[in-house]
Design a protein around this nucleic acid. Structure first.
Length: 263
DNA sequence: GCGACAG
DNA sequence: ATCTTGTCGC
């Protein structure tokens, strides 16, 4: 096991080229295979928890919302962090930092990373796993926001995106049934050999009848988690909703916290 | 030049 | 991400 890499933290003041160079460095430092302490089975079966003895792992969900100034411009980002253990919320924290740069596909962590790291600093519990809203390895330089944050903190992390940034599904992802997955592999737009498995389209939920459909989630390793385990965990943590519970709760908390600050 | 593009 | 009511379907 290695160490946190605060030296690789996102800096919104870097040039685009420098940001991309930093991402290549992050991808090199990232571990795209299972390397965490808990048994992932305990996330889906409470019985496995009892059998293994100790506390269930602390799983954290993280999502952002944005605040507008008097002129109506987005000027601050709010990161909401919800820590859960055994399905229960054990802590919630949030942080607000000024927004430095616009949204640029591929550079999301440089826009939203600061509030995330600030919020995680104030969290008293130690996360065993962090789930982010956005991509991990499914990224042009294999360094999406989940990978970037995971490497900086050296915490196991997973990226959960609602749409596909890049890469190619290995099969049609339309109208699949609950629990199914389709591999997402590298294509020419990705800085990896063509065909490299980057993650999975995961159908965490689907309607019964054929008229209305739910799109899959695009799950990829952030850091210290392999693609299969990432998909398994996303499924295990999703029950009544499309999003894994920790992320859904963070999404909701990000909105609530925003209201409590005006707007 | 054209198309693609997490949140 | 965000602006927002009604509305389609089970």
């Amino acid at each position: 096991m290695h160490d946190p890499r605060p030296d690789l933290a996102p800096d919104a003041g870097l040039s685009r080229e420098e940001m991309e160079a930093l991402q290549r460095e992050i991808a090199t430092a990232a571990v795209f295979e299972d390397d965490f302490s808990f048994d992932p089975d305990v996330l889906s079966s409470p019985l496995a928890t009892t059998a293994s003895g100790g506390d269930p792992p602390t799983v954290v969900g993280i999502d952002q919302s944005f605040l507008t100034n008097d002129d109506g411009d987005q000027d601050r980002a709010l990161s909401a962090v919800v820590a859960t253990r055994g399905g229960e919320v054990i802590e919630r924290v949030h942080a607000v930092t000024p927004l430095e740069i616009p949204y640029i596909p591929g550079l999301l962590s440089f826009r939203e990373g600061a509030p995330i790291l600030a919020a995680l600093e104030t969290l008293s519990v130690d996360p065993d796993l962090c789930l982010f809203d956005g991509s991990g390895r499914i990224h042009f330089r294999q360094a999406g926001i989940a990978t970037h944050m995971g490497v900086v903190r050296d915490v196991p992390s997973i990226g959960v995106a609602k749409s596909l940034l890049c890469g190619t599904p290995r099969a049609d992802t339309d109208d699949r049934s609950t629990g199914t997955t389709v591999g997402i592999e590298a294509n020419s737009r990705v800085d990896a050999p063509d065909g490299t498995l980057l993650g999975y389209a995961v159908q965490t939920r689907q309607y019964d009848s054929p008229n209305r459909h739910i799109n899959p989630l695009y799950v990829s390793p952030g850091h210290r988690v392999g693609p299969e385990t990432a998909a398994d965990i996303a499924l295990a943590l999703s029950s009544s909703y499309k999003l894994p519970e920790p992320v859904r709760l963070a999404d909701k908390y990000a909105d609530e916290a925003k209201q409590n600050l005006g707007e």
